[in-house]
């Protein structure tokens, strides 16, 4: 990109990583804020596992793995929402079905591809490979980021209405099922976009941890979202810098920084109520 940035972002590959990381670091918590409020904090995790099955299917069929991951993740997210919305399975049970089914299908597809002599390297998809993003990747991620921001601006208040009280929202004529489907699709798209950054196994952390930190200090939903986006971006910058400085895996470093920020915020505010109650919410 050739931007005059200081170390550790002076190299082109670090600048590409920074741009992509900032977009995902900022946008993932925008979607995560609604998932957390909907008590579906681990939805990203379940859909991430499903996306892995899509990646492996792409490798097996010699189709771009990101496109197959996107297709499988969107269909899976809509199915989870359908199961949950019709009371056919509780939120966590619906997620568990996809958690295990997705990772198992991914393992089977990947082993089948290897048996057919196809070069299979799933590690970049599982844990991210942000330092290898191309300028084309930047455009794709920027387009997805724009979509997420636009949807949040247009439908944010309606989504808040649905996650607060879907019964009252239905009486008010708000398209509850449509907005739940929109949130599911945004979740799937965010996960696939973030696959290159932190990998499908860690993306849920980037959607949820900044929100957990922001909830500890925010006094409104608006400041929760803005704060979470800021914390997500900050985690990305510090994580990338730490990865360059000490030769760490960038995806893991970013998520560890987000975890550290939560610990610091919880320590300063003297409370862990929002963050530590998250697992019981999914």
């Amino acid at each position: 990109m050739g931007l005059p940035l200081p170390w550790p972002f002076e190299r082109d590959y670090m600048q590409l990583a920074l741009v992509v990381g900032l977009v995902i670091g900022t946008c993932a918590p925008l979607v995560g804020a609604f998932l957390v409020q909907k008590q579906m904090a681990l939805m990203g995790e379940g859909i991430g596992h499903l996306a892995f099955a899509g990646v492996a299917a792409g490798l097996l069929l010699s189709i771009s793995p990101l496109w197959t991951a996107l297709g499988v993740a969107v269909v899976g997210a809509l199915l989870v929402e359908w199961l949950r919305g019709r009371g056919k399975a509780s939120g966590d049970l619906a997620l568990a079905l996809f958690f295990y089914g997705g990772i198992a299908a991914g393992a089977v597809f990947a082993s089948r591809a290897a048996a057919e002599g196809i070069s299979v390297n799933v590690m970049p998809y599982l844990f991210g490979s942000i330092l290898t993003v191309s300028p084309e990747d930047v455009w794709v991620v920027a387009a997805i980021g724009t979509l997420i921001v636009a949807c949040t601006l247009v439908a944010g208040r309606a989504l808040l209405s649905v996650v607060l009280d879907d019964g009252a929202a239905r009486v008010a004529g708000i398209p509850v099922d449509g907005l739940n489907a929109l949130l599911a699709i945004l979740t799937a798209v965010t996960i696939v976009a973030a696959t290159r950054i932190v990998g499908v196994l860690l993306i849920a952390a980037l959607m949820v941890l900044p929100v957990a930190s922001s909830r500890l200090i925010a006094r409104s939903f608006r400041t929760t979202i803005v704060g979470a986006a800021g914390i997500g971006a900050l985690s990305t910058v510090i994580g990338l810098a730490a990865a360059r400085m000490w030769g760490l895996a960038p995806g893991g470093a970013i998520v560890l920084v987000a975890t550290g920020i939560f610990a610091i915020v919880a320590g300063i505010t003297g409370t862990t109520r929002a963050g530590f109650s998250l697992p019981s919410h999914h």
Partner: peptide
Amino acid sequence: PQRHRLDPELPVTVAELVATGRLARRGWW
């Protein structure tokens, strides 16, 4: 609705919550 149990960790203000009721009149988008 019947007394709705609000999430005690919910960071939403009175004005933000009341504003969601206006969506029915204005249109959600």
